[in-house]
């Protein structure tokens, strides 16, 4: 409770700093105040287009995230099991990690339509995050537990859930937590470059073109809220699975 109060106080402090800075600047074109942003957001939520844009971007970013996490997990399992795959994936993962989102986005626009762009970009962001974390988890698996399971002749299904999955899930959880935020950032950045019709990225782009700073801030705030909601939702599902595993 005390921790939550401290966190809330920290948020209020920074909002106050923002408000003071906006008042000091005195031009909402340069820096919209928190009050203006909230007012603009309150107007936007009444528009159908606002919710359509949210649905459009969220569905694509989450699709890329889920595909990316799944692929990352599969790659990590293969690499953890076979050195051949570890060596094979190493340069690919290193390259995907190092290449800037903007380069990928421009390149991807040649291959896919702008509507599919955020799916591809978030997929590319999620894969190395999931891969690196899960691979690390696999490498950290306690081999002595496998020997214990051999001695007690623990069946394969129970062994998989109780020994392997229970040890890997914390790594999966931390990778998912990191990847959700990164996917939102990169997915929206890709949309700003590709400007697909009906996306949050296009709204951000328009707010820049028409110098609607309050809109820019309102959409940014919405992206943060969406990122937090999707992260909490996904982690809730993961935690439910973890609790189920804990109780075997």
């Amino acid at each position: 409770m005390k921790k939550k109060l401290i966190s809330a106080a920290a948020v209020i402090f920074w909002i106050a700093v923002w408000q003071i800075a906006a008042l000091a600047v005195g031009k909402s074109l340069l820096l919209a105040s928190p009050v203006e942003v909230i007012q603009r957001l309150a107007t936007l939520v009444q528009e159908q287009q606002f919710w359509q844009s949210i649905l459009y971007s969220t569905s694509r970013i989450m699709l890329g995230f889920i595909f990316g996490m799944t692929t990352g997990v599969i790659f990590a399992v293969l690499a953890g099991k076979f050195v051949f795959f570890e060596k094979l994936f190493a340069p690919l993962i290193a390259a995907v990690k190092a290449v800037p989102v903007a380069s990928f986005t421009i390149l991807a626009l040649i291959w896919v339509t702008s509507a599919q762009l955020s799916v591809l970009i978030t997929f590319l962001i999620a894969v190395p995050i999931a891969y690196s974390n899960i691979f690390e988890g696999i490498k950290a698996l306690d081999g002595k537990l496998t020997v214990m399971a051999d001695i007690f002749r623990v069946p394969a299904s129970r062994r998989f859930v109780g020994i392997y999955l229970s040890q890997i899930m914390p790594y999966f959880r931390s990778s998912a937590k990191l990847a959700v935020g990164m996917c939102w950032k990169s997915g929206v950045a890709a949309e700003v470059i590709g400007i697909p019709k009906g996306s949050i990225g296009r709204e951000l782009y328009n707010s820049k073109v028409y110098l609607e700073t309050a809109d820019l801030f309102a959409w940014t705030l919405m992206i943060i809220i969406l990122s937090i909601i999707t992260e909490k939702l996904f982690l809730l599902i993961v935690d439910l699975i973890v609790r189920r595993i804990e109780k075997l």
Binding site: F152, R159, G162, S166, Q167, L248
Partner: peptide, 20 residues
């Protein structure tokens, strides 16, 4: 066996470790 180390699954409950 009781091994030199406990060899328990740290993320499982006591009951689950035995049920494993």
């Amino acid at each position: 066996a009781v091994f030199q180390e406990d060899r328990l699954c740290e993320n499982l409950t006591v009951l689950s470790n035995i049920r494993l």
